[in-house]
Write a protein that binds this DNA or RNA. Structure first.
Lengths: 138, 138
DNA sequence: ATTAATCCTATCGATTTAATAGGAATTACA
DNA sequence: TGTAATTCCTATTAAATCGATAGGATTAAT
C-alpha cells in the first residue's frame, strides 16, 4: 500500500509544479486545495526540502518552491524519499540492501528472483516518469 | 514491503512443488527446512488451501499437496490471496477497487495515473510467472 | 486406543502509520 | 519596533497491522 505520506507528497509536488507564479506556495493553500491535514503536510514538505526537491522561504509570504525543473524530478527518487525502498524485499533493494536472516543462499531463493523482476519493472516506470509528466495538464 | 506471510507462502509453495513424491508434504517438514515458525506456516497453508491452490490430508501421514499443475498456479493470483491487492492504491485496484474519499475526480488525479502504470507493469510480471518458473531448479 | 497430523479461534506484543499539539525561529511590513 | 504570518522542529497519541504464539478440536492411520 502506498502511504498517505507519499500520496500527499506527490499531490503537493504536483500542485507546486502547476502554480505558475514565482511566488513560493504556502502549505495552507496546498492543504486546503488538496484536502490534506495541514500539520501533516508540513512535515512532508519538510522532508522533501531536506531531500533537495524543494526550497523554502520562511516568515510572512513564505512557502515552498521547486529547486529543480519538473522534468528533472524523477519519481523513483521521490518515492525512495517518501515511501522508502522501491523493492518489496530488502534483499533485492538497490539502495537499501539487507540480507535476509533466514534464506541461506540468496542466489537460489525463488522469492528473491521473483522480486527482482517486480522491482525492475517498477523501476522502469518510476525512472521514466518525472514531475513534468505528472503535472501536465492534459 | 512484502509481508512475511507472503514470503513464507511462496517458499512453501515452491517447496511443495519441488517435492517429487505423491506423498503430501507436512507443515513441520517445510517449516524446518525453510526456517519458518510452524504455527504461522500452518495458518498460511490453510489460507492457500481455502483459496484452492492446495489440497490437504488430515491425520497421520497427512499434509499438503498442489491442486493444480505448477504451470497453472499464477503468481498474480497467489499474491492477491497472500498479500492483498497488487495495486498500491485502492482507486487503481482491479480486484479490490475503492474510491478515495479525498480526490474529487479520479481522472485528473496524478497519483492515480502514476499508480496505474506501476500496477500494469507489476501485473505483467506476476501474470507471466507461474509456480513452475519459481520451482525450476536452475 | 494411541499417535500424528491438519484445522480453527483467540490473543498478544511490537511496529508502523496518520495525525495532532505546542511552540521556536524567521521574515514582511505597518 | 512590534505584530502577524509563516516555516521549522520535537514529542506524543490513537489506531491499525503484522508476526507470532497458545491451546485445543478434529480427523485419520496403525
Amino acid at each position: 500500500m502506498l502511504s498517505k505520506k507519499t500520496k500527499y507528497g506527490l499531490k503537493a509536488l504536483t500542485y507546486i509544479a502547476r502554480s505558475e507564479d514565482d511566488m513560493p506556495v504556502q502549505v495552507g493553500e496546498i492543504a486546503k486545495s488538496e484536502q490534506i491535514p495541514q500539520k501533516f503536510l508540513e512535515s512532508i514538505l519538510l522532508t522533501l526540502r531536506k531531500a533537495g526537491f524543494l526550497g523554502s522561504k520562511k516568515g510572512k509570504h513564505g512557502g515552498y518552491y521547486l529547486r529543480k525543473q519538473p522534468s528533472e524530478i524523477i519519481m523513483a527518487d521521490v518515492m525512495r524519499i517518501l515511501e522508502g525502498p522501491i523493492a518489496m524485499v530488502p534483499c533485492v533493494s538497490l539502495n537499501f540492501y539487507e540480507k535476509c536472516e533466514d534464506c541461506p543462499n540468496e542466489d537460489q531463493c525463488t522469492v528473491n528472483k521473483l522480486m527482482i523482476q517486480v522491482r525492475d519493472s517498477t523501476l522502469k516506470v518510476l525512472r521514466n516518469t518525472t514531475l513534468e509528466d505528472l503535472s501536465a495538464k492534459s
